[in-house]
Amino acid sequence: MIAGLIVLAAAVVLVLIVIGMYNGLVRAKKQVENAWSQIDVQLKRRYDLIPNLVETVKGYAGHESAVLENVTRARSNAMSASSSDTGAKISAETELSGAIRSLMIQVEAYPQLKANENFLQLQEELTATENKISFARQHYNDTATNFNTAIAVFPASVIAGMFHFRDAELWQITDASEREAPKVKF
């Protein structure tokens, strides 16, 4: 009888440990999803700013249509990339970031545009949004790394395997030119 109670108590403790680990992994996964959605919030803000920026630049630099078309196309691709496919979303957003950088480089050739109050305000808002996106990406990567570590360590790795938890994809630079130091010319 005592042996049966000990076995029962051990089974209850084991079940409670499994439940605790599972719930911890679910919480960590939800934190990753929340961090990803925070990136989406900032990306939406950027998507909303880009058409205004393109229209303002178009008035001054209409013949730079290739650059403007690249920004518009990259924005459309980024907006249509599925948030559930992290890799595709990251790739599309990287393309959009590059197109925006190209646009800002082209703007340097137009002193009247750089002095335009509407453009300056849009540029400031876009810069602030890009900074927020950068911080959101950093938070996402930190949260994803914590989750990936949680599902990799023993004994949680056993529970993670049983319930099919998979690593969260990290936001990484895919364009080698983004790793290079910027060239400053005076």
Rank of each mutant, 00 (worst) to 15 (best):
Q112G: 04
Q112D: 15
L113A: 02
L113C: 04
L113S: 02
K114V: 00
K114N: 01
A115H: 03
A115D: 02
N116E: 02
N116L: 01
E117P: 03
F119V: 00
F119S: 00
L120V: 00
Q121K: 15
L122I: 00
L122D: 00
L122Y: 00
Q123G: 01
Q123A: 01
E125P: 00
E125D: 06
T127H: 12
T127K: 14
T127M: 12
A128H: 12
A128E: 09
A128K: 15
A128Y: 03
N131Y: 08
N131L: 03
N131E: 12
N131K: 10
N131D: 08
K132N: 05
I133M: 10
I133N: 05
S134R: 15
S134C: 09
S134K: 15
S134D: 12
S134F: 13
A136L: 04
Q138H: 14
Q138Y: 11
Y140V: 05
N141R: 07
D142P: 05
D142G: 03
D142A: 15
D142Y: 07
T143M: 06
T143H: 02
A144W: 05
T145W: 07
N146A: 11
T149A: 14
T149Y: 09
A150L: 11
A150Q: 13
V153F: 11
V153D: 11
F154L: 04
P155M: 04
P155Y: 06
P155K: 08
S157M: 01
S157C: 07
S157L: 03
V158L: 12
V158N: 10
I159D: 10
A160F: 06
A160G: 04
A160K: 03
G161I: 06
M162K: 15
F163A: 07
H164V: 07
R166N: 08
R166L: 04
D167A: 13
D167H: 13
A168Q: 08
E169P: 09
L170C: 11
W171K: 11
Q172I: 11
I173S: 15
I173D: 10
I173W: 09
T174P: 05
D175E: 14
A176D: 13
A176F: 06
A176G: 04
A176K: 14
